[in-house]
């Protein structure tokens, strides 16, 4: 398990060298999107319309931040549960997205898309919203402002702490529960 400092957007080479269990401190530009924003991105794609950000190498952070207090760019900003974006993620990976950041398990389609398109799924610590907020230097709403917390924001992050959960080789870091130990199997 290695430790890397990387910059977003991610290059193909960066994404492909990562293995599950690696720690990554990510700097650069990433984009927020959760349930409602993903739905709108799909609508734009269906209508062949331009998207609010360049998908090439993009890192999408599944987060709905709390409102920014006076003097800070953003409020608390930890990950939301990722499975709700599973139905959208493969299409976005096919169009150039290199990574998503969230918490919790992905389904087989997402894991296959990571293999097929050379992407990764990063975990950030759920519920550590104040801690993660400290690594966000700038935040700007770039689309769907009416969605409030669910709007798409461009974030400038600095050494944002991540763990590779799923890599481009099909690896999965999450533990399989020991059902045998408690007589469930």
């Amino acid at each position: 398990m290695a430790e890397y400092r990387m910059n977003a957007p991610l290059s193909d080479a960066d994404a492909e060298k990562l293995r599950c269990g690696d720690v990554v401190f990510l700097s650069g530009v990433i984009y927020t999107a959760r349930d409602a924003a993903h739905k709108r991105l799909m609508d734009l794609l269906d209508q062949n319309m331009e998207l609010p950000f360049d998908l090439k190498g993009a890192v999408i952070y599944y987060v709905g931040p709390s409102p920014a207090p006076e003097g800070r760019p953003i409020g608390s900003a930890g990950p939301t549960t990722s499975y709700r974006m599973d139905s959208y993620a493969p299409r976005l990976h096919g169009l150039g997205v290199k990574a998503s950041i969230g918490k919790g398990r992905r389904n087989a389609e997402v894991i296959n898309a990571l293999k097929k398109f050379g992407g990764v799924y990063f975990g950030a610590t759920g519920g550590a919203g104040a801690l993660l907020s400290m690594r966000i230097a700038e935040a700007r709403v770039i689309a769907f402002e009416d969605l409030g917390t669910e709007a798409i924001r461009e974030l400038k992050v600095s050494e944002f702490p991540l763990l590779v959960i799923n890599d481009s080789q099909g690896g999965d870091l999450y533990v399989t529960p020991d059902r045998k130990a408690v007589g469930l199997e």
Binding site: S66, G127, T149
Partner: peptide
Amino acid sequence: AARTGLPLCQD
């Protein structure tokens, strides 16, 4: 969270 007044979690 205690120091900055940010909520513990964004949710």
